[in-house]
Design a protein around this nucleic acid. Structure first.
Length: 463
DNA sequence: GTGTATTTCAG
DNA sequence: TGAAATACA
């Protein structure tokens, strides 16, 4: 065995990388390859925030490889065609790849295997790269995946994680394999001004800081919107600049109730991944349909636009939507309450919301994003599909002083204390002085509409 | 063993 | 309400 190709996808790191390790052990030289697949980065799915974060990741990966005597090879085009081309150029006999769960990733694996085998090249697909516990590693007796988190978490917790792998010391890349320039942030427009920086170096720095001084306060603080005691590691998990296996090991080593609560969130990520792996269509179709006849772009465009822009007249909803636009990120509590508002209060199709989140979120992820949206819409794995989060109750609970709202809704910056959550209750003059809209809908009217709609749609005869 | 009833508990 | 584990036939 002389040369292996390592195809990097959502695993843009050198530490704890089983495909890279296997390639280095089996071959004298390795081609670390990233393909900008037009199916992912092309028009229609161009999410500038993620393209910028991706550019950081690729730049850092290239640098890390150069420090080890290698470099990153970047190509553009169809991922299968490019892998075959590079394998032929390098005269490689093996290709290594991390397993992944989306329909796109599953099809990519099948297509790659077929195309490479026709060329006499073996494809090795590696587990425990993009998940801590792989889809199918644990399953209930009567199904290929869990549909309820709690029993899943029991099995997940008992699963023995493999040991983590160090980064390689040396990577030899064959001469003469051409590469495009590593993409950069320059030229990207429409970026969120407060967008986080990407890359493995940055991710490891954040992880170290989080374990040192963040994780201990996680259990108590994770739901507080303003305090934001969350790890902000989600984009690093999405792009694989951090290994979920390493994350679980190191969080457990940190110990304490904060670590436990944090590890539970990593398990939620794996939970959604094993649902999507078994049901890849759930990225676009109801996991369990409620036969909803949602309002859509066609029938509710003004409501949808007000939601997207953060001018629904419900301050906490608007604050969260503006945080999303400004940072390319939103606090998880905000994600739940804005999703409830769009799907339950406005009765708008969850796909409209999921799509907007994917357009902006730097951690926008098929499994987590789509299945959390379905969870909140009541078409997913939630056992109480008709639950509605009241934005005022949520605001008072998770932003008790109103600081989060004042931070993101400057029109309300002068309103002191929790009164900021209900500007419609302010005395007439004070309220008139604010350049802030009246509530888009009455909450109880929204709730009544939702209940009527669910009853109507659920009772409709099957087509 | 296999299929079915029961119980438990859920972001 | 419904999924999963357990009890039971």
């Amino acid at each position: 065995m002389n040369v292996s190709v390592v195809l990097f996808t959502s695993d843009l790191r050198l530490h704890d990388h089983p495909p890279l390790r296997a390639a280095l052990e089996g071959a004298r030289e390795v081609v670390p390859l990233f393909v900008r697949d037009r199916a992912v980065t092309g028009a229609g799915f161009a999410a500038p925030n993620r393209l910028a974060f991706l550019a950081d990741c690729l730049h850092d990966l290239d640098e890390g490889l150069r420090e080890r005597g290698g470099r990153l090879v970047v190509r553009s085009g169809d991922v299968v065609a490019e892998v075959c081309r590079v394998a032929a150029e390098a005269d490689a006999d093996e290709v290594h790849l991390a397993a992944d769960v989306s329909a796109y990733a599953q099809l990519r694996e099948v297509r790659l295997r077929r195309a490479l085998e026709a060329e006499g090249v073996r494809l090795h697909v590696h587990d425990t790269v993009t998940s801590a516990v792989d889809p199918g590693a644990v399953a209930p007796a009567s199904s290929d995946h869990f549909a309820v988190f709690t029993p899943y978490f029991g099995h997940w917790s008992r699963w023995r994680q493999r040991d983590t792998l160090g980064a390689p010391r040396k990577v030899r890349v064959p001469d003469g394999i051409g590469s495009e320039p590593v993409p950069s942030r320059r030229g990207l427009s429409g970026l969120s001004p407060g967008l986080a920086a990407g890359g493995e170096t940055e991710g490891r720095k954040r992880l170290a800081a989080w374990l040192r001084s963040g994780i201990a306060g996680y259990e108590d603080g994770h739901d507080d919107l303003f305090g934001d005691a969350t790890s902000r590691l989600s984009p690093h998990l999405h792009f694989g600049t951090l290994s979920p296996v390493e994350l679980v090991h190191r969080a457990r080593a940190a110990g304490g109730p904060g670590a436990e609560a944090f590890v539970r969130q990593v398990a939620w990520r794996d939970f959604h991944r094993q649902v999507l792996a078994a049901r890849p269509d759930a990225a676009a179709a109801d996991y369990r349909t409620k036969r909803d006849r949602w309002r859509t772009e066609r029938t509710a465009s003004e409501d949808i636009e007000a939601w997207r822009e953060g001018r629904t007249g419900y301050p906490v909803v608007d604050a969260a939507m503006r945080q999303l636009r400004h940072e390319g990120w939103m606090h998880n509590r905000g994600r739940l309450l804005t999703a409830s508002f769009l799907t339950k209060t406005l009765y708008v199709d969850w796909r409209v919301g999921a799509r907007h989140f994917l357009d902006l979120l730097v951690d926008g992820d098929m499994a987590n994003n789509q299945l959390n949206w379905q969870w909140m819409a009541g078409t997913g794995t939630d056992s109480r599909p008709n639950r509605v989060l009241n934005p005022v109750t949520q605001a008072k609970r998770y932003d008790p002083d109103g600081a989060y709202v004042r931070r993101w809704v400057p029109e309300l910056a002068e309103v002191a204390g929790p009164a900021v959550h209900e500007p419609w209750k302010l005395p007439g003059l004070d309220r008139a002085a604010l350049d802030y809209p009246d509530p888009l809908v009455d909450l109880s009217e929204g709730l009544a509409r939702f209940r009527r709609a669910r009853e109507r749609d659920e009772n409709r005869a099957a087509p």
